[in-house]
Design a protein around this nucleic acid. Structure first.
Length: 260
DNA sequence: AGTATTTGACCAAA
DNA sequence: TTTGGTCAAATACT
C-alpha cells in the first residue's frame, strides 16, 4: 500500500450527518423496494429483485467508501460489533473456551460477519487450519505490530457461505494497543469496505422512536468498522446525538433520526 | 535482502 | 485421542 495524494480531512459532524442521511435514505428505499417487489417479481420477466439488490449493494459500498476515506484503523471494534447482529454487548465475551489457547479466556473477544475480512488494520497471517464441518479453512492473523509495539490484537477469519455470497466470520481477540496506521498511508484505493451490510441475520431495519419503532422489513444491519480515533469519537458523538442503537435490544439504526 | 505467506509440527484442553 | 490454535522453517514475493 503506497501513499497517495490524499490529505486527511476531518468531516464536520454536519457534513457527516448529511452524507449518511443521503446514503441511508437511498439504501432504505432500495430495501423497501426489495420487499415490495418480492411478491411481484415472479409475475414479470424482469429480475426486479436483482436490480433492487444491486441498488442496495451500491449504497452499502458507497457508505463503506465514505467511511474508509475518513478512517484507517479501528482502536476498538465495540461499536462496529454492536451494529452487527452477530454480536452484542450482552453476549458472553468468550463463547467457546474449549480447546485451544488458555489466554483466550482472559482476552476480549467479539465476532462479526462481514463481506470482507479487510478492516484497515495491518495483520500478519500466522496460520491456517481446516476446521471440522467447515467448507473453508480458518485463517489466523496477529497484529503486524505484535513485536515492535507489543500489540496483542489477533483475529481469526472463517469464510462462510451466505446465500451463495462470500462472507467472513471474523473473531477479534484483544484490542489493538498499537498506534493506528496513518490516514495517508491507509486510505489508498485498496483500503475499502470498512462498513458492510448483511441481510443474512436477525437484524431488522426499523424506523420510529425507541418505543414505537415500526418494522420496515427483514433487511439489513450495518456492520461498521470505524477506525481512526478522531472519527471514532465523532461517530460516538453522533451516536449519542442521533441514537444509533438501543441499549437493551439488538442494535439497530433509528433511520428517521438521520432523516429529520 | 527484507518481508509476508504457507504449511506441517507441536501444544493444550476436552 | 481429537481438535483448534500457535509456532517456526521453508518458500514466495517485492
Amino acid at each position: 500500500m503506497e501513499a497517495t495524494g490524499y490529505r486527511h480531512r476531518r468531516l464536520t459532524a454536519e457534513t457527516w450527518r448529511r452524507i449518511m442521511e443521503i446514503l441511508l435514505r437511498g439504501r432504505q428505499s432500495a430495501a423497501q423496494l426489495q420487499i415490495d417487489l418480492q411478491s411481484a417479481a415472479s409475475a414479470t420477466g424482469i429480475n426486479w429483485l436483482a436490480l433492487a439488490d444491486e441498488i442496495e449493494s451500491s449504497f452499502a459500498e458507497a457508505i463503506s467508501l465514505v467511511v474508509s476515506s475518513e478512517s484507517a484503523s479501528c482502536p476498538d471494534h465495540s461499536l462496529c460489533s454492536d451494529l452487527d447482529s452477530g454480536y452484542s454487548r450482552r453476549s458472553p465475551a468468550v463463547k467457546d473456551l474449549g480447546r485451544g489457547n488458555k489466554r483466550r479466556k482472559l482476552a476480549k473477544t467479539r465476532t462479526v460477519t462481514a463481506a470482507t475480512a479487510e478492516d484497515g488494520r495491518a495483520w500478519r497471517k500466522y496460520g491456517q487450519k481446516a476446521i471440522q464441518n467447515k467448507t473453508y479453512p480458518k485463517s489466523y492473523y496477529r497484529c503486524t505490530h505484535k513485536y515492535d509495539q507489543s500489540c496483542p490484537a489477533v483475529k481469526h477469519v472463517q469464510r462462510i457461505e451466505d446465500n451463495s455470497k462470500i462472507m467472513y466470520e471474523i473473531t477479534y481477540i484483544s484490542d489493538h494497543t498499537c498506534a493506528p496506521a496513518s490516514p495517508i498511508a491507509d486510505t489508498s484505493s485498496d483500503s475499502y469496505n470498512l462498513i458492510c451490510f448483511s441481510n443474512s441475520h436477525n437484524g431488522q431495519f426499523t424506523e420510529g422512536t425507541d418505543d414505537n419503532a415500526t418494522k420496515v422489513g427483514e433487511t439489513t444491519m450495518a456492520s461498521c468498522v470505524m477506525n481512526e480515533i478522531d472519527l471514532w469519537a465523532e461517530f460516538n458523538d453522533f451516536e449519542h446525538q442521533y441514537g444509533l442503537f438501543g441499549d437493551n435490544e439488538d442494535p439497530y439504526f433509528f433511520v428517521d433520526s438521520f432523516l429529520k
